[in-house]
Simulated scan of single mutants.
Amino acid sequence: MVGREEYSHIFVRQITLNLHMNPQFPKNEWWKPANEGGFFGNNYILGDEWYDRYLNDRLMTRKNRIFRETSGISDIVKRHQLNGLFLFCPCGNGRLLNSFKMINSKLIGIDLNFNYLYHANKTKQKNVLSLINSDMRYLPFKDNVFSMIANMWTSFGYFSQHEDNVHLLKEWYRILNQNGLVIIHSNINPIQVGHWDGGRRQKRITLSNGGILEITETFDVRNEKIWGVWEFVGKQKTEYNQYAITVWSIEKWKAVAQKIGYEIVNILGSIQDIDKSLSMEDEECVILLQKR
């Protein structure tokens, strides 16, 4: 564990940054680290650092994005008067985790990708108590220890089996304090996907290194999935990264959440405006689940 001893009581077992993979780690899943044949590696980091067409219609640097997203999380936390321990799940390379600077906030980041955690550790701030290498379905924490869980940038719906996605919500419920909040943020609007032209959307993005990223996503209504391809077009070669993300309707979100014990306190259309309810035109979706 990379962190402070006074918080060691929240863990079910002691963990280090060199933790071996969970024995239940599934095979042949797209969300593995790139060195395991999956999507998340250097290409993803490069693709995540584009400078144009952010949310389609405005230019925004990486620094601008970080400020926008961390400010939105802070506004939600203040609105719901949350304090104590906050979990970024997953935390990736620490882009948001290490930039979240609310007074008295104590943070923990968890991610399956060791290489991302290695980079996150390089810029780790004093309020980040631990970085943990683990599958987020099998959280190594005791019950009722977190006040807020942030699941940012379309990081829910990775798992091919419906039961695994539901299990993740149950794990978050287990480790949340009473009235604790889960923030699930996505650049996929569940109201909008069913109205994509031909069930498909495409983007062409110029990257900070001068290369081109072409994104093609197709919505499979029957299976509630978006099938996506990132095509990186460079000077020397073209590389492809593929993924599949489960997208539930608002009605299904309400049914699943209620069955677990959550209350959906709001569904927002922007991380930047916490008073804006989701509408057809929005390019983001932020679902706020509260443990009751």
Rank of each mutant, 00 (worst) to 15 (best):
residue 252 K to G: 06
residue 189 N to G: 03
residue 178 Q to A: 02
residue 126 K to F: 13
residue 2 V to S: 08
residue 78 K to Q: 14
residue 252 K to W: 08
residue 17 L to S: 01
residue 159 F to M: 08
residue 38 G to K: 04
residue 274 I to G: 04
residue 81 Q to V: 05
residue 281 E to Y: 06
residue 178 Q to W: 01
residue 35 N to R: 01
residue 290 Q to E: 11
residue 128 V to Y: 01
residue 143 D to G: 07
residue 269 G to R: 11
residue 259 K to Y: 07
residue 97 L to Q: 03
residue 161 Q to Y: 14
residue 49 E to C: 05
residue 289 L to S: 04
residue 157 G to M: 09
residue 95 R to F: 03
residue 145 V to M: 15
residue 16 T to A: 09
residue 166 V to C: 04
residue 162 H to W: 11
residue 278 L to V: 10
residue 148 M to P: 03
residue 231 E to A: 00
residue 27 K to Y: 11
residue 227 W to E: 12
residue 177 N to A: 06
residue 16 T to R: 13
residue 207 L to K: 00
residue 93 N to G: 13
residue 231 E to H: 04
residue 200 R to H: 09
residue 261 G to P: 05
residue 268 L to R: 04
residue 277 S to N: 15
residue 243 Y to V: 03
residue 39 F to Y: 13
residue 100 F to G: 06
residue 34 A to M: 09
residue 138 Y to P: 03
residue 165 N to G: 04
residue 194 G to N: 12
residue 104 N to L: 14
residue 224 E to A: 10
residue 60 M to P: 01
residue 145 V to E: 15
residue 290 Q to M: 14
residue 86 F to H: 12
residue 68 R to D: 02
residue 268 L to Q: 10
residue 176 L to T: 06
residue 39 F to T: 07
residue 281 E to L: 06
residue 61 T to K: 15
residue 150 A to I: 07
residue 152 M to P: 02
residue 3 G to S: 08
residue 13 R to H: 10
residue 143 D to E: 15
residue 43 N to M: 02
residue 138 Y to V: 05
residue 63 K to P: 00
residue 67 F to Q: 11
residue 42 N to K: 06
residue 109 G to L: 11
residue 169 L to V: 14
residue 97 L to D: 01
residue 228 G to L: 03
residue 190 P to D: 06
residue 5 E to A: 02
residue 254 K to S: 08
residue 286 V to F: 09
